[in-house]
Each structure stands twice: as C-alpha cells, then as structure tokens.
Design a protein around this nucleic acid. Structure first.
Length: 331
DNA sequence: GAACCGTGGTA
DNA sequence: TTACCAAGGTT
C-alpha cells in the first residue's frame, strides 16, 4: 500500500490545484478556509476566503467584530450558522486560549462550529498533527479503495472509516500532504460520477476498480423523501416607502431577522396583517425533507425603507428585492 | 439519531 | 426539469 500512496503523493505534487489555503499554515486562515468549504465548492468559496481574511484578518478582529458585519461578509454563501459559529469560536479562543489556537484536534473540536472534520483539518494542515481528515471525498476514496459497503451516511460510518483513514496516514511522510492528496483525488479524479480511474494513481490498489464497478461505491442509505415547504413574506406600503415585514422568524436567524439588530425606532406595535396593506407576498421553495411543516411564529418585524443594503440578506431575498426594484415597487 | 441548514453546478 | 451533490456541524 505504501508504494501506491507514494504514487498518490507524486500525483498530487504534480497535478493538484493551486489553492491559496494550501500555500500557508496559519491556523486562522486554515480554519476560515475549512469552514467556508463546508458543503461548498472551491469555486464558490474562493472569493469569500480572500474577502473574509481581508475584512477579519485575525482572531482578535473576528472576536471583536459586530455580528451583523460577520453575517454581511457571509452574505450569499449559505449555511449562515457557520458565520455565527465562527465568531462564537473566535470569542472562545480569546477567552480560553488568549487568542492562540490549541494544537490538537481534540482541543479544536470543542470550538463552536468545529466538528470532527474541521478539527482534524486544522490540526493536520496548520500543525502537522498525524491525523486523518474524513470528509465526503475521503469517504468515497476509501469506500472504493476497499470496496467497502458501509453506508457512508450511516451513524457508524465515521467510527468505521476513521481508523482505516488513520492507518493510511500513520506512515505518511507528511500528514498534511497525505490528507490533501486524498481529498484532491476525491475532488478531481475519484468523483461521484464518471471517476477517471484511467488516471488514478491508486487504481492498481483499488478494489472497486478491480471489480470494474466504482459507481457501486460508496454505498448510501435511503434518500429522504423530499417535500416542498412554503414560507410567506409580506411587504407593506408605507408613506415613506416599502417596509418589509416578514414571518417565520427564526429561519435564517440573525441574518435579516431583526431581533439581533438595534432598531432605531421600533414600532410600538407591529402593524396588523390586513389584506389591503399587503401588496405582494411570495413563496420560497426550499428543498426540505419529510417531516413537520414550518411553524410560523406570530412575531413580525420590519425594516425601514431604504436600508436594505445594511442588512445581510440571503440570496433568495436579494432575488425578490431585485424583482420588486425592477418593477419600481421599492422606493 | 434524524432533521435541519443555502447556494450553485451538473446530468 | 428534477434530483442530486459539494472540504459538515448542530440540535
């Protein structure tokens, strides 16, 4: 196996993408990049990586920042709890570690928003700890390598694959190089669809390839039944312009929902939903899963006209506002 | 432990 | 078009 792994490292050094977070070992930059890349493709996260480090260059800066500013920097990326957790963790780091990253994944995993993958990634990439990262790419590569039919989305998947992954990194000359190489392989050659086995440095060792059936791996459990969910938002016409009142508070919490903001002049009582005041409302279609429909809390909030840009808004909101603007419905 | 969280790309 | 998927983590 070691010969094959050496072939993998050689391949990586020759063919890997040149990505900015791979060019340094600053734990802060590694951390930010790993969180940005959670469930997010490189091309989507790249610009955010540069901008976020520019805007919040250090743990101290991030810890001291206004939460709305952090969310604003995250605007459009999705999974906004990542941004809130980043700042929470930055404050944890200041309080518990004097702003200096602990070096072991076991300590890192106690940080908010830092799970088993990200903790090991920081430990390996920033501090050279000999530990194996386990993400979607690694799951796929390992499952194919050994034709392992353990469902990778099962509860026991991580417990099953982590020791196997750790065994691979055990004798690697460079843990960071090893982890990067396995992930790069999964991201560029050992892909979900149409894997490029012809060019794969591990093909000679790969059980799934020997079986001529890489598509059979990794095994995944039953997909959840998907169901449509509707969210209603309401727009009010006011003498000053358009005030946006939204329901289903708690969804996208903190993003454009106002409880986290200081309202200059909060209305004494929110306007009642009266049909003649509602001039438009829209539905959002989200991919949602089988289960209870969204609860719509009674709380109503509003944003003053002309202040849209000050708020971090999800992409879906921007699209709606853009449409309204085009129709001259926003003052 | 299952359900939940966003967005953009792909077949 | 629909469904799936991507450097996961939290509740």
């Amino acid at each position: 196996m070691q010969n094959h792994l050496n072939a993998l490292y050689t391949w990586y050094l020759a063919h890997a993408r040149d990505l900015p977070w791979r060019r340094q070992t600053d734990p802060y930059a590694v951390w930010i990049s790993e969180v940005i890349l959670q469930q997010t493709r490189v091309n989507q996260g790249l610009a955010y990586y540069y901008a976020f480090l520019e805007r919040f260059p250090t743990v101290e800066a991030l810890a001291a920042a206004d939460e709305q500013a952090v969310l604003k920097a995250w605007e459009g990326l999705g999974y906004y709890s990542r941004a809130r957790n980043l700042q929470a963790a930055a404050r944890q780091l200041m309080a518990a570690y004097g702003g200096v990253f602990p070096r072991s994944w076991a300590q890192l995993v106690t940080l908010k928003g830092v799970g088993p993958y990200t903790a090991r990634a920081i430990a390996a990439f920033a501090f050279g700890e000999r530990t194996a990262v386990l993400d979607g790419n690694v799951f796929r590569v390992l499952a194919r390598l050994w034709a392992d039919d353990t469902p990778i989305d099962s509860a026991r998947a991580r417990a099953h694959f982590q020791p196997l992954a750790d065994e691979l990194v055990a004798h690697a000359p460079d843990p960071a190089l090893h982890n990067n190489a396995v992930m790069e392989l999964g991201a560029t050659l050992c892909t979900v669809h149409n894997p490029a086995c012809l060019y794969c440095p591990l093909a000679a060792a790969c059980r799934a390839h020997a079986l001529r059936n890489p598509a059979a791996y990794p095994v995944k459990g039953k997909r959840r039944e998907s169901k449509e969910r509707h969210f209603a938002f309401y727009l009010w016409q006011t003498p000053q312009g358009v005030a946006w009142v939204q329901r289903s508070a708690g969804f996208w919490k903190g993003l454009y929902v106002l409880p986290h903001l200081e309202l200059p002049e909060p209305p004494a009582e929110p306007p009642l939903l009266q049909e003649q005041h509602v001039f438009t409302h829209f539905r959002m279609h989200l991919h949602v899963y089988k289960g209870v429909p969204a609860q719509v809390p009674p709380d109503l909030y509003w944003i003053k006209p002309g202040e849209w840009d000050n708020y971090p808004l999800p992409k879906a909101m921007h699209k709606v506002l853009g449409g309204l603007q085009a129709r001259n419905l926003l003052v």
